[in-house]
């Protein structure tokens, strides 16, 4: 008979769906910022318009995410203590500073994009925003990865997964908002590199997920227990929504675009929009599974 442990700890998840929304929106914002910076030097007006949309999407999404996180705090009136106290050993404290800087610089960057042809100063701010965006994306992974008490999170693969998700959801989010804003309006072949980037980021996310699973499944006993606990509760959501709907189906939908170089590869705009929407839904589901599943307590280790 295996060991049976009874230990009463506080019930329910410690971080709930609001933290998932924060990480998801923050990821979309970070990815959108990077897309804006990547496209900002393009000479193609359609890509510049997408960059403009992405530059506006970035700060809005990061702010929305932070607002959800704010509602999760138990004592919101004390939030100024993050500024008054220096806590360099805390990843979250660094994240607070980095996200504050990203929002500030991102808003300036979005302001610089109000005129699509005014490039003065935009490249400099773009470089700064790009660096901050990557750092914040990494922070989202490190925040969970540094919590060694949670075996599902405490590994390097969480960082890889976080980065890959912000890339895919950021591109998809910016594209979707762009099409809602602009409609088809003549882009098409010009957007092909963006579709390719989206498809590649989806493949990277698949690899990151497989890497996480392998690391946990063949890792320590605690890792295996954490994976089993998360799989029991959230396995269907991850496989069905996160991977099936959010990775495989969008890749299938995008396949004609990747194979043919003409406008949309024969796909209609609604199909492209659907692919983007699926990526966002899948990305949210994966974040949800990671955040909630990582808190499922494995059996408390006893005296070693």
């Amino acid at each position: 008979m295996e060991s049976v442990l009874i230990y009463t700890v506080q019930s329910g998840p410690i971080w709930d769906w609001r933290v998932v929304v924060d990480l998801f929106c923050g990821g979309v914002g970070v990815g959108a910022f990077l897309l804006a910076v990547a496209l900002s030097r393009s000479e193609d007006v359609q890509r510049l318009k997408l960059a403009q949309t992405a530059a506006f999407t970035g700060p809005v999404m990061v702010i929305v995410g932070l607002l959800f996180l704010f509602t999760k705090l138990g004592n919101q009136l004390n939030v100024h203590q993050m500024i008054l106290n220096v806590a360099p050993t805390s990843i979250m404290w660094w994240g607070f500073l980095l996200q504050g800087a990203l929002v500030l610089c991102g808003l300036i960057y979005a302001w610089q994009w109000r005129d699509i042809n005014a490039r003065s100063g935009r490249n400099t701010m773009g470089c700064l925003v790009g660096v901050l965006a990557v750092t914040v994306g990494i922070y989202h992974g490190v925040l969970l990865g540094a919590l060694t008490a949670r075996p599902l999170w405490a590994n390097g693969s969480m960082l890889f997964l976080s980065v890959s998700i912000f890339l895919s959801t950021g591109i998809a989010g910016a594209l979707l908002i762009h099409y809602i804003r602009m409609g088809a309006s003549g882009d098409g072949a010009a957007m092909r590199p963006v579709f390719v980037a989206l498809a590649v980021s989806l493949m990277v996310t698949m690899i990151a997920l497989a890497n996480s699973w392998a690391g946990l499944n063949y890792g320590s006993l605690a890792s295996q227990q954490a994976l089993a606990a998360a799989s029991d509760t959230y396995g269907t959501m991850l496989c069905g929504v996160g991977v099936g709907m959010g990775l495989i189906l969008p890749l299938i939908l995008l396949m004609p675009v990747l194979r043919r170089r003409d406008e949309y590869g024969g796909l209609s705009l609604p199909v492209i929009a659907l692919a983007c929407l699926l990526v966002l839904v899948g990305g949210f589901a994966t974040r949800y599974v990671v955040v909630l599943g990582g808190q499922l307590p494995p059996p408390i280790a006893t005296l070693s």
Binding site: Y7, V9, Q10, I14, W15, K72, L73, G74, N75, Q76, N78, V79, Q81, M82, N85, S90, M92, L147, T148, A149, R150, Q295, P297, I300
Partner: peptide, 17 residues
Amino acid sequence: TDKCIGCRLCQLACPYG
């Protein structure tokens, strides 16, 4: 408690519950 913002990161970090 006067400094606590209720983020609950300490709960997640503690391996002992």
